[in-house]
Design a protein around this nucleic acid. Sequence first.
DNA 1: TCAAATT
Length: 522
Amino acid sequence: MARSTQTETRSQQHPPQPHHLVPTSLVFSGPGAPPTQPPLLLIPHQHQYAQIPFPKPMNGSESISIHPENGTMKDQDAIKLFIGQIPRNLEEKDLKPLFEQFGKIHELTVLKDRYTGMHKGCAFLTYCARESAIKAQNALHEQKTLPGMTRPIQVKPADSESRGGRDRKLFVGMLNKQQTEEDVYRLFEPYGVIEECTVLRGPDGNSKGCAFVKYSTHAEAQSAISALHGSQTMPGASSSLVVKFADTDKERTIRRMQQMVGQFGIFNPAVALPFGTYSTYAHALMQQQAAIMAASHGSYLTPSVAFPATQIHQMGALNINGLPPTPMTPVSGLSSPPANITTSAVPSIVTPIVNSFTGIPHHQPNGHPAVEAVYTNGLPTYSTHSPTAADTLQQAFTGVQQYTAIYPATTLTPIGQTLPQPPQVIQQQQREGPEGCNLFIYHLPQEFGDNELMQMFLPFGTVISSKVFMDRATNQSKCFGFVSFDNPASAQAAIQAMNGFQIGMKRLKVQLKRPKDASRPY
DNA sequence: TCAAATT
């Protein structure tokens, strides 16, 4: 299929221009008004080709619909636009002037998180007239950058207006980092009409060696896979070209989870499950776990760096039952929100984490003592020093214990079913377990005593002994200790889960204790 | 080597 000569001019021959920042007023007017462009199919911009065809008008039907609230009417063939890269402090009323220049607005809705109400940084916009949408897209899409944003505004038909495109979107891997959108376009062009071609880049603008290519049809995408996947090895690439369908949203979520697992060194059977059998419920667990981990990093990492904002807010939005928490008031009294986190976005992360813990049943269905007793019991008191790292730490461990203590089994307990019984605490003197049941733990937090150590490992089974070694002279922890389980499987599970568990700048070392009599060869 | 976001 021949492309227009227009396309030929889209090469990335010049270094990316800095994006123009719109001034305080979002309304373009006078000399700064958006340039009038012919209705285009291919919009040039920094890192992306975006050929965005509008859905065809319904044949001959010119019926109208009336907005229930503002009474505006829209054409039957109106296009719902997705607006992206909106600063989170802009609401509908702030955005209206910007978009009204292109026509009367039928509906403009800023997307909010359903639980937290948090602005998602994007919106849907429907004009009364189809033509207005086309004008707005041509004038704004990738053309302007709203104040505070680093990337240009997105104005394009919402996914709902077409099929979303997931079934015709390809991921291209093993490109070399010098290849531009233009190069990728050339490569994929023979197999169909390309609607979008994006090379993924890091913050520095350097290619990540992969790209997305969206064809107009699934069949075209499929033929590109057949023709190109593995067909060649780009100079400098470590293996042959990868061409496959891009991840679905679900897969992306899973991928992010896996990254979190990698990042935080968590492994918990109950949480690992969603990789096989994905469920919202499991997702909620994972999200929470990640939130907890984020809290434990509070003093070292900017949470917004660790997680996309949407994720952070989702984390807080679900309690352990996978349901939205009803009250937003802390009830547990376990800990106060970390005082060290002062970024405005952050309290909303931390508070819900604490809140969400209230979703834990106070009594087991089987009549055993409350799970809460297990994890509240003997938690360190940090009230004498500033509630910073230690406080978040406390939350972190408390949280880990909650999950694993409530769901220690390798299968998720369906909601409403009897929960597995938490492992019994057998208080003891220094008891050593059988071979393979005794762990050596290093890099413990200074504040951890025997009890905290036990708390940390209870989720993995019955702890028959826990001992933190103390310096006799100073009565300070030596930051290592021993934990014994009653069976080797628990010990192994604990190693899996906790070895490498990051606390502040350090990672726990969790390994089998060397048997006393295991004489080393030399 | 899988995006920032799609009610």
